[in-house]
Amino acid sequence: MVHLNALKQRHPKATTDHPSQDPATLDHNKHKLGLLPPTKVHSSFSSLKTIAFAWSLFVGFLALLVLINYQLHYALPTPVYDAVDPTTGRVQFSEERVRAIVRHMSHDIGYRVVGTAQELETKEYLVKELANLKEEARIANLRSHETLPQFDVWVQVGDGSHRFDFMSKGK
């Protein structure tokens, strides 16, 4: 039989039977000696508080990402009111000009039902506006030393006839 003092020298904490010693330390020492069955070792991520905190950070990040994407998707550019860029002197797209054209088409001309006089008036008005824009672009091209883009206007004329190809036969 092994003497008690020899055990104390090898495992001084395991053999102490002081009532002042912590019970958790005694259980730990018993596990070391193999007197108790092994228990599950807990990591720092297994606590419910840590898991809830990690999920709240993740959900918060996703919410922030959704908010930023929503703002970027629905953000409108600043409107341009001047027909001529004040810094370069070039003709530019103007919100006021577009509003004037749409206002004339909706208030002055009215409904544009196919085959009515309003439809013909709208076509003539838009062709006139495009011709004015083309002339302004030509003049701006002559004034500048750079080659600016030019554009052509093509107006499709409908005659009311249609061609239907049905099973390789024209009707």
Rank of each mutant, 00 (worst) to 15 (best):
V2P: 11
H3Q: 14
L4T: 04
L4C: 01
K13N: 08
K13G: 00
P19T: 09
S20P: 01
A24D: 01
L26Y: 12
D27N: 09
H28T: 00
K30S: 04
H31A: 06
H31E: 04
K32G: 06
L33P: 07
G34C: 02
L35E: 11
P37D: 02
P38I: 03
T39I: 12
L48P: 09
T50G: 10
A52D: 13
F58E: 00
V59Q: 04
F61K: 07
L62A: 13
L62K: 10
V66W: 13
V66Q: 07
Y70L: 13
Y70D: 02
Q71M: 14
P77G: 05
P79F: 00
P86G: 01
P86S: 05
P86F: 09
R90M: 14
V91W: 10
F93A: 13
S94F: 00
E95F: 07
E96L: 14
R97L: 06
I101K: 12
I101Q: 08
V102I: 07
R103I: 00
H104G: 03
M105G: 13
S106W: 01
H107P: 02
G115N: 03
T116M: 04
Q118L: 00
Q118S: 11
E119H: 10
E121T: 13
T122W: 03
E124C: 09
L126C: 01
K128M: 08
L130Q: 04
E136T: 10
N141D: 07
N141A: 11
S144P: 07
E146M: 05
T147K: 14
T147V: 10
L148S: 00
Q150F: 08
F151Y: 02
W154N: 11
V155A: 12
Q156I: 08
V157Y: 07
G160I: 00
D165L: 15
K171A: 10
